[in-house]
Every structure is written in structure tokens, then in C-alpha cells.
Amino acid sequence: MALIAENPKKASLATRFSSLMFRRPRLLLFLLLAPPLLWLGIFYLGSLFLLVIQSFYRVDDFSGVVIREFSLETYKTLFTPANMEVVYRTAAMAAIVTLASALIAFPLAYYMARYAKGRMRSLLYLAVLVPLWSSYLVRIYSWKLILANEGVLNWILQTIGLSGVRDWLLDLPVIGGPSLSFSYLGMFFVFVYIWLPYMILPINAALERVPRSLIEASSDLGAKPGYTFRKVIFPLAFPGVVAGSIFTFSLTLGDYIIPTVIGNSSFFIGPAVNSLQGTSGNVPLAAAFTIVPMVIMGIYLLVARRLGAFDAL
């Protein structure tokens, strides 16, 4: 038959390999999946597993030596008020940053998905993505300078006569401080700035997938724009909001650079882990602290699923 180009026995090695893979699709699947699964299994899950185990070791109070036996001592330490305050502070910051990011990101993502055309569209995507190309550290230190009392933000506020607003904000209890770069408020600004693209992009992707005809259908059936937004657009974009909030929430929970550089040097989980495993040599407590964001994220995802965040996927 002319259809069979070559005698299979004389075929090149590549052809024979391709034929083998064609006949044995499971073998192909195995060859393709083995490297990523090994990588994930050993380096990712493996290290996570070690982390969990470490959190059940304890440090001897007198010698400071890690005792490698199962113990709940470390968790007892974690749940002391001083340590829990760090957890609450971090979780509160993460929650507020996430909420603010979502509120800022949604209109922009909506505009990008539905209205922006041609150059404007490309420009907006560029504006969202370009900050991710430059170093995270450089950007944070720039913000420290921008927010400082001698910084450009203060200069602008003074020039347009709004220093009063700044002083009022800095005088507020808890979120205020001596200057924006030494306050929770400044830290909040920098967190939102740094993680905003991670919120915009998933929401944008979710909105891109909402066909225009659904919005037209809702309007056709008598719904005013606000109703359409609540009943059609937002529910369909909600998985994107959840995806984005997973990024902003977990990244804020785990970050250690921003709370170190900006803010009033009160502890957040990230810096706490850093100093526990370094200067204090208390690796078990550091491990226990690391478990906290994971548990919070787990609960968060369960709640999100309950709310139907993934129904429209």
C-alpha cells in the first residue's frame, strides 16, 4: 500500500519512537508527567512535610538546643498572646489589603475587559505588567523614600495644601505614626501597590470570559445595569476575585520585606519567622508560624467554595 510510506522496520529511530508513543499513550503520559511530579513531590511537598514535622519539635529552654521528639510545646508557645498578636496583625493587614486591592482592581479590570480597545488596551496591560519586571526590593525602597517625611509625597501634599490631611491621618491611633513610611498606613499603601497586578489580572481574565450577549440578555429581560452587575457580571467574575484574593492574601501573609522596610517595626509573620530561625535559633517555632498562613488559606478556600466561588468555573 502506498499509504504506508516506509517499512516500519527500516524506519528512523524518531519515527519508531513516535509510533511507540502513539501505540502506548500511557507511556507518553508517564514520561511527560514524571519530571514535574518528581519536582513537586520532592522539593515542594517534601519540604512542606519537613516543615510540619519541625513544628512538632521543641527547643530546650535552657540549652537552646532543638529536641527532635514529638511535642506540642511549640504550638503552646505559638498560642501565647504575644505570638497570636503577630498572627492577628498580619491576618488583619492581609484582609484589608485584599479588600482594597479588589475594590481598586475591579473597575480597572472591567474597563480593560469590556471597553478598552486597541492602543488603550495594550497600554493598560503594559501599565499593569511593567512594575512586575522591575525588582521588588528596589520598588519597596523607592516607596520608603516616597513616603518619608522629606519625600516627594509630602512635598506634593504641602504644595497643594493638603498636609493637614496627612497630619490628621498620621495622628490616628494604630494606623498612624511619626511618618507614612513608619506607619501601618504606609505599609498598607505599599502592600496594595505591590500586589495589585495579582488582583487585576485574574479578575480581568474572568471578565474577559463573560460573553457580551449575557449582559445584553439580562438587559433584554428588563434588568437595569446595576441589577445586571449584581446578578450576572459579579457572580461570573467572582472566581476571578477569589483567585486574585488568594494571591494578595497569601502574599501579604507571607511577606517579610515590606513589614521590615516600611512600618513601625512591630512584628508580622514574615519577619517573625526570619528572626526566629535566624537570631533566636528557634526553628520549630518558625516552622509553626509558617503553618499559620497555610491553615488560614485552607480555611479561606473552604469558605470561598461554600460561597460558590468555583461554581461558575
Partner: peptide, 14 residues
């Protein structure tokens, strides 16, 4: 006071 049957049906997936 008109209603439309869309080409792609436009049923709300959620």
C-alpha cells in the same frame, strides 16, 4: 417590551 432569543442562547451559566 421586546425579548430576544440569542444566537448563542446567552443562558446564564451560574
Amino acid at each position: 417590551d421586546v425579548n430576544t432569543v440569542f444566537q448563542d442562547y446567552a443562558l446564564f451559566p451560574h
